[in-house]
Design a protein around this nucleic acid. Structure first.
Length: 368
DNA sequence: TCTGGGGTCCTAGGACCC
DNA sequence: TCTGGGGTCCTAGGACCC
């Protein structure tokens, strides 16, 4: 099952403020982060500059982004999801895959309705639900069910629909991969029939992507729920008009360090590494990575390390303007307390990674 | 059909070790 | 001392997702 809140940010604002209900409105600061369905009907969509919205649709209401409200709504939404099954894989703040195998009393439509009702009653948000045999099909089903609906894809429907799926509609196939498939005159899933993984690799796909695409054609794409582990990294970036002024670039980088560290919250893990990203005005991007002098969340120490990495990128010697800088802080997979003496570290580490694999493999979904 | 920002996963090449 | 094979870790960059 794929459960996905409709127009999440906009729906939270409409829930909390009567003046936003039933009218075209958007959430955003500079650009539209989320448009209400009423606004979408006019042609407004995420990513559109707010200036353009105000020019063409002056009656459209604009709500500022209230991150805390969305976090809170997200937490309550996931509480609802977890009441139906502990096997919940978040896709983002507002959507998740749920393995409900054996929990739906052979009534997937009833269960989808129950989840939607619970989200509506308890969180006040519309949630669309897709039910199917695999994650891909469930995701496509919830997309099709929007807004505020649900769709159950049974075997007969899947057999009809799957061959006709457009490759550029597939979750996991982005513009780059689609372009390669398109160049090989492959457009829908049925065009993949008879092609091997090697054939797809010869189209320029990586091994992992070729396998994924081949499995979609074979109908063996996965239904595995991956339970979320601790997050892998925190980061912050900021874009700005192209500049070559050192004080500007360094100030933005320092501020990014502060924001990334703040994002760490109560996570007890101490970062040991740091990454600095620089984007130039021709769109190219470079990343400098390196160890911190010692594990720390001390802003001064992390900031100093960030400046060294920035220096190392050679941006000042580069003729191009800089349009974005930021940091990403990878978080250690092992808790410091789990560290062991050097003599046995290898065994301890391989054991730990084995555990992680076990966790990531999760549970098989079986067949619906 | 690109706006900005926050993430995950994969890959290729090199260093290093046994 | 050389050769081949296997493995891990690190680095830098890409693709994709919301």
């Amino acid at each position: 099952m794929h459960a996905d809140a409709d127009a999440f940010f906009a729906s939270v604002e409409q829930r909390d403020h009567a003046r936003y209900r039933g009218v075209p409105m958007v959430v955003g600061e500079q650009v539209v982060a989320c448009a209400s369905y009423e606004a979408r009907a006019l042609g407004i969509h995420a990513g559109m500059p707010l200036g353009q919205v105000r020019r063409h649709w002056p009656a459209t209401l604009v709500a500022p982004v209230r991150g805390d409200a969305y976090e809170e709504a997200s937490a309550r939404l996931f509480e609802v999801f977890r009441r139906f099954t502990p096997l919940v894989e978040p896709g983002s703040m507002e959507e998740a895959f749920l393995d409900v195998t054996g929990r739906d009393r052979d009534d997937p439509a009833g269960m989808a309705a129950a989840i939607r009702d619970a989200a509506r009653q308890e969180v006040g948000l519309p949630v669309s639900v897709g039910v199917a045999r695999t994650k891909l099909m469930a995701k496509l089903a919830s997309r099709r069910a929007k807004p505020d609906g649900f769709l159950v894809v049974d075997a007969a429907l899947e057999a009809r629909v799957r061959p006709r799926l457009r490759l550029d509609d597939l979750w996991g196939v982005g513009p780059v991969t689609y372009e390669k498939l398109h160049a090989a005159r492959l457009f829908v899933v049925a065009d993949l029939y008879g092609l091997s993984v090697d054939d797809l690799k010869n189209c320029g796909l990586s091994t992992a992507m070729a396998r994924r695409v081949a499995s979609i054609a074979a109908g063996t794409d996965d239904a595995t729920i991956r339970l979320p582990g601790p997050r892998g990294s925190v980061g912050a970036t900021r874009s700005f008009p192209a500049t070559r002024t050192r004080s500007t670039v360094e100030a933005v980088l320092r501020a990014s360090v502060q924001r990334a560290l703040a994002r760490l919250g109560d996570d007890a893990r101490l970062p040991t590494r740091l990454e600095v990203v620089v984007r130039y005005d021709d769109g190219t991007q470079v990343t400098e990575r390196g160890p911190l002098p010692q594990p720390t969340t001390e802003p001064e120490a992390v900031g100093a390390a960030a400046l060294r990495l920035l220096e190392r990128s050679g941006w000042e010697q580069d003729g191009r303007g800089v349009t974005l800088v930021g940091v990403s802080i990878p978080l250690p997979r092992l808790r410091p307390a789990a560290r062991v003496a050097p003599g046995s570290s290898r065994q301890a580490q391989s054991q730990a990674s084995g555990d992680d694999r076990q966790r990531q493999k999760g549970w098989p979904a079986g067949s619906a």
